[in-house]
């Protein structure tokens, strides 16, 4: 099949960047989107041109590296799919395909389609971690977890941190990501001791990175390759409200003690 590509090319973070048009005349419908770019890059290299920079790792839809907006949709037109699992048969012969990087202030473009998603790592770090060896895993049945809680926590934990939610959100909000990361711990007994502190710290970190506010469009849920529900955002809001009330109460107790 033939396609006309319009790919965002940008030398580095300070370059202005712009779209470059590439025509490909012999694309197999069985190629994945990334394999199609591989072929394009081979052709570019043969001509002595700079290949298109894009991020990829597992190519089986679980690493979340292949961040690109394809024809106005994060990871392209197919639901519950990352760009590496998207196949060229999903496009029409002769179609114009626009490929852009994630667009968010918090995700600066490094080169072409590659963005720096370090902001996500900093949100996770704000949730707290331990950097010393904490012993081997305890006996699995020593802490009982109700099945519905385990299932729901697993739904949230399926987040691969790809950033499609931010890319798809008209506000550039990272609420679905943060909600998934907060909720998968908040749903489990092991996550309880720091639950109220964690939600505060992670939301503060999210704001520090200058992600936008959530206005409940639901675009993130549609774009999420793992199908994470915006009900987790509701859960995040609930925990935030609760933790703020706890803080206010603690503050009042402090004043009383003095």
């Amino acid at each position: 099949m033939k396609i006309k590509l319009h790919i965002w090319r940008q030398k580095n973070s300070s370059d202005k960047g712009g779209f470059v048009r590439y025509e490909m005349n012999d694309v197999s419908p069985d190629m994945s989107f990334l394999e199609m770019i591989d072929v394009l890059n081979e052709q570019l290299e043969a001509k002595g041109e700079e290949p298109v920079g894009f991020e990829h790792d597992c190519r089986e839809g679980i690493c979340g590296a292949c961040s690109m907006v394809i024809n106005g949709r994060a990871h392209g037109p197919q639901a519950l799919t990352t760009a590496c699992q998207l196949h060229m048969r999903k496009f029409k012969d002769g179609e114009d395909i626009w490929v852009e990087p994630w667009r968010a202030r918090a995700f600066p473009v490094v080169k072409d389609l590659i963005v720096d998603r370090g902001a996500f790592d900093r949100i996770i770090q704000a949730g707290g971690y331990i950097s010393v060896r904490s012993g081997s895993a305890p006996e699995a049945n020593s802490i009982l977890v109700p099945k519905p809680a385990a299932d729901s926590a697993m739904d949230a934990a399926s987040c691969i941190g790809c950033g499609a939610c931010v890319a798809a959100c008209p506000n550039g909000s990272a609420m679905l990501f943060t909600a998934a990361k907060v909720s998968h711990l908040a749903l489990l007994p092991q996550g309880q001791p720091e639950r109220m502190l964690r939600v505060q710290k992670m939301i503060e970190a999210m704001d520090r990175e200058m992600f936008g506010p959530c206005t409940n469009y639901g675009e993130c849920q549609e774009a999420c390759p793992k199908g994470i529900s915006i009900s987790f955002i509701s859960m995040l809001n609930r925990d935030y409200l609760k933790s703020s009330l706890v803080q206010i109460k603690k503050g009042a107790e402090k004043v009383q003690a003095q």
Binding site: V69, N71, G72, A106, G218
Partner: peptide, 17 residues
């Protein structure tokens, strides 16, 4: 919100907004 996305998309499709 305006601050969060200084450069917009050339092409933009909505699924449910």
């Amino acid at each position: 919100k305006q601050r969060a996305r200084p450069i917009g998309y050339a092409k933009r499709e909505y699924d449910c907004a």
